[in-house]
Amino acid sequence: MMGLPSLALTGFGPTGWGAQLLWAAGMTVAVSVTAFAIGLAIGGLGAWAKLSGGRVAGWLATAYTTVLRGVPDLLVIYLFYFGGSQVLTSIGRWMGHDGFVGLNGFTAGALAVAVVSGAYQTEVIRGAVGAVSRGQGEAGRTLGLSRWRVLRHVLAPQILRAALPGMGNVWQLVVKESALISVTGLVELLRQVSVAAGSTREPFLFYVTGAALYLVITSMSGALFQAAERHSRRGWTAAR
């Protein structure tokens, strides 16, 4: 049923959508990287709040992770896309700027996915910090290292090693979640695939191509994370 003319549609010829699809795949990677980075910062903050940030901060962090892990991500995206403008508009009004202020699809989407992934990231980092024994830090201090150097040279590498597998999972989640941002009209991979599917009337071909491109992104970045894990474990197993 899919003859050669159909396959030309996903290529780079004059009738092909290849260039647009690759550009959109780049957008998916860009929005995922942005969301992952912000999510990592949120996760670090959340883990700190849960581990050593007083009662109120700990309670807030627990509420945050519970809510974000129990509510559909699509709902969070709607909240940021529509609600983001609402909040900015009211801030604008308060500052004397009358009217509507929009949040673009990229910002709203990246923030929404970051906030969702931050909840998972919190648990990953908290687990990793717990896996590094207290004695390690104390040992570093007895050696006369400054607090910063203990963190930089003793604790951080070990926490990172323990957290990497979990972070790899969160990254995969972020890439897949980023597809939901298509509902805001941001032309990332899924949105571009839908547009192509609609205007060529070849939905099967384009959604299969889209799924394949996502598989390329997730498996290539998965391999990167595995390499990073191996690197972080160097000298570890041998020293048993």
Binding site: S178, L190, V193, A197, Y207, L215, T218
Partner: peptide
């Protein structure tokens, strides 16, 4: 596991 659920839904709904 490697592709978004939304793509799978579209593939089944519009693709098939």
């Amino acid at each position: 596991r490697g592709s978004p659920l939304l793509v799978q839904i579209f593939l089944i709904y519009y693709g098939l």
